[in-house]
Design a protein around this nucleic acid. Sequence first.
DNA 1: TAGATTGTTAATCGATTAACAATC
DNA 2: TAGATTGTTAATCGATTAACAATC
Lengths: 206, 206
Amino acid sequence: MVNLLQTRRLQRYRMALLRLKKMGLQKTFSHSLSEETGISAVLIRKDFSQLGIRGRRRGGYNIDRLLEQLKLIFGSEKEQNVILVGLGNIGSALVKYEGYRQGNMNLVAAFDIDPAKRTRRYQVPVYSLENLRDVTDTFDVSVAIMAVPEFSAQETASYLVENGIKGILNFAPVLLKVPDHVLVNNINVMVELERLMYHTGIKQKA
Amino acid sequence: MVNLLQTRRLQRYRMALLRLKKMGLQKTFSHSLSEETGISAVLIRKDFSQLGIRGRRRGGYNIDRLLEQLKLIFGSEKEQNVILVGLGNIGSALVKYEGYRQGNMNLVAAFDIDPAKRTRRYQVPVYSLENLRDVTDTFDVSVAIMAVPEFSAQETASYLVENGIKGILNFAPVLLKVPDHVLVNNINVMVELERLMYHTGIKQKA
DNA sequence: TAGATTGTTAATCGATTAACAATC
DNA sequence: TAGATTGTTAATCGATTAACAATC
């Protein structure tokens, strides 16, 4: 019912709504949200309509109601557990990151092949990958953040999938091969920078 | 001529091609690349055709030639300079990151408002934001990585734009308001995780 | 030659927008 | 009431795919 493009938009709406709420507003209009998000007002109304969120013909949309509906859709009543694999530069930063709770998520464990990493004190326990199944079973984990080096990315991903992981947030600069039922979201700083450079360059020429 | 969707695909092709090359291959076929990238073979042929990259009717595409063409398109003959703003968890990880050179980029400086950060030794010089203009002028920087806290993100972004930045890779969980000529790419771990959870959940139900 | 593969044109599909009716 | 705004249906637009011709 809600596809990938739409999901992204809904997340954008929510960000904007949270901001408006923080500013003390209680209601908003499709054109205001359009201003905030860069998404057209018609599309916003259509999205809301399709999700069964109704506004008032003259009075716009109630921000709290919108946020509640979005919360329902993203189903975050129950805290979701996540694991992190790989404690290099990025992995370490992500362990220290404090925002999981706020997103109703919980980073329950980290994994690294280097035993030295496992003796150091982090915010969460650090295990060997041998213990993966225990952790995923105990905490009902289906999503993993993967911040391992390029050369071991595919192998690690396959191992994660074998052990029940269905979603991977992949920081390694590798196109992972995974079965159809597994979803991979790639985060690649170089690729993002390159695209920024390309498109800002285009505009200079135009 | 090359839009945002297509740019992403081209970057994907390149990743796949680099991998095939590393495996010792010299040529490839649209259906092989399709397998690697998840993009349909027809679309791959159409993309290549549109970019003026020709294959051989029977013999497929030459990997090196493809990579050269892609290199031309992304215009990385000349090293591109980048700056980083904000040396928190993520910022510090990005300073330590070693991949810029490989992508023909150069991280020339970092910025932080905290003077303590500026005395510590990093891989690049760390300045106060007051020195931004000097740096962007000296190194001809038009793209910045922004890893500052949420509360100062908009202010920082505006300041960057005032000082000539045209592309921002934004790690703060904020929808930035920037002029039309500026491009923002957002990286938000929470949002990515949430989407993974949503879509993997969908599939469980289906 | 037959078969495999590219490259292109037409068809389809899906997403977005335009137009406008409903109504507060 | 008039005006603003939502919500929906039809139109448009763009991206992807299907079909097939070209050719190695």
